[in-house]
Write a protein that binds this DNA or RNA. Structure first.
Lengths: 181, 181
DNA sequence: ATCCAAATATGATCGCGATCATATGAGTGT
DNA sequence: ACACTCATATGATCGCGATCATATTTGGAT
């Protein structure tokens, strides 16, 4: 059956949202086109009316996730605490797309890597603007180091099966990158 | 044909070495049993004489890689420089198994996660022993934060397609975690 | 109102990869 | 030497997932 142009755009948005959530939760390979379409409330056949291929979907889903999650630029401390929280660790599906997919994107075609690169660059720039100035270090260096530690800690905390060690990695990294508060 | 007990153990070692290299290079999903066996100089059928399943192989390959790469504990500065070098970024196949596989292991069965957990714990302990003592921070906290930053930076550097940004992430993180030298 | 094109649904196809069944042939203990 | 067992080789099987072919239904323009 046919559908309103409005409805079609909405369906496309649904597909992207479902894909970006499923990819973050399970990884690119574990999520099939049919599963994405089902999660979007559609059937698998219509997929190729919206996207060229699964590769195309991966790239657009990354872009969708990275542009959607751009919060406010103030309150770095709060951002850090939320990022390195057990809640974020336990909810990859709605969390940071870089922590969930950056390692995976290494094996993906150029379009997906380009989208990821744009997201990483934007996040570093945002952090650079948000971080407090310091006499001893440069802001951009701080931003890059802090971002790397955040992502590394979240990935490690998610990889580890021992909850105590996982919590320790989150908590100690948070104290380490932000010693003052 | 049959083979010496010695030869069989050697074959098993070859399979593990090939698997650990291929997994680090391409990820778990992209590497099939047949490819691993071929890289080890065998045919795919004999695989189940050595391992229960692909899951079993994944877990043992992680353990193999993590126990093999335990270098000396001194010279943290040199270790850091090598870890955050373009050479390491470009050679995931022979590099740190955590940077290559920790994010992936999140989607794997318990055995693989247990092996990865053991490797991460050992590496944190090793770094804790190797880091210089400090008045302002605790050694274990330093170790965890530094390790997180190293892994995060390497993952980001490998995800990014722009070589300039990739190099910058490596270099700035290195300067950030180790400001003195 | 009517016709047409477009969006989705339904149902192949096609290749790939994990696992298993059977065959082969050479180590191993007697 | 001999029989026998076991490691490997060869060749199915089996399910899954990406992609495509065809059908269906209804927006949208005339």
């Amino acid at each position: 059956m046919r559908v309103t142009q409005e409805q079609m755009r909405e369906n496309r948005r649904r597909i992207l949202a479902a894909a970006s959530r499923l990819y973050r939760e399970k990884g690119f390979d574990a999520v099939g086109v049919a599963e994405v379409m089902k999660a979007a409330g559609l059937t698998h056949g219509g997929f190729y009316g919206h996207f060229e291929s699964k590769e195309d979907l991966m790239a657009q889903a990354i872009a969708h996730a990275t542009t959607e999650l751009s919060g406010r630029d103030d309150d770095v401390g709060g951002f850090l605490a939320a990022y390195l929280s057990p809640a974020h660790r336990n909810d990859a599906a709605n969390g940071c797309p870089m922590a969930a997919l950056a390692a995976d994107v290494r094996h993906r075609p150029p379009a997906a890597r380009a989208a990821m690169t744009a997201g990483i660059r934007a996040q570093i720039d945002r952090l650079t603007r948000a971080l407090p100035d310091s006499v001893t270090t440069e802001r951009r260096r701080d931003a890059i180091g802090t971002y790397a530690a955040m992502i590394g800690a979240l990935i490690l905390a998610r990889a580890v099966e021992d909850p105590a060690l996982s919590d320790e990695i989150l908590g100690e990294t948070r104290a380490w990158v932000n010693p003052d508060p």
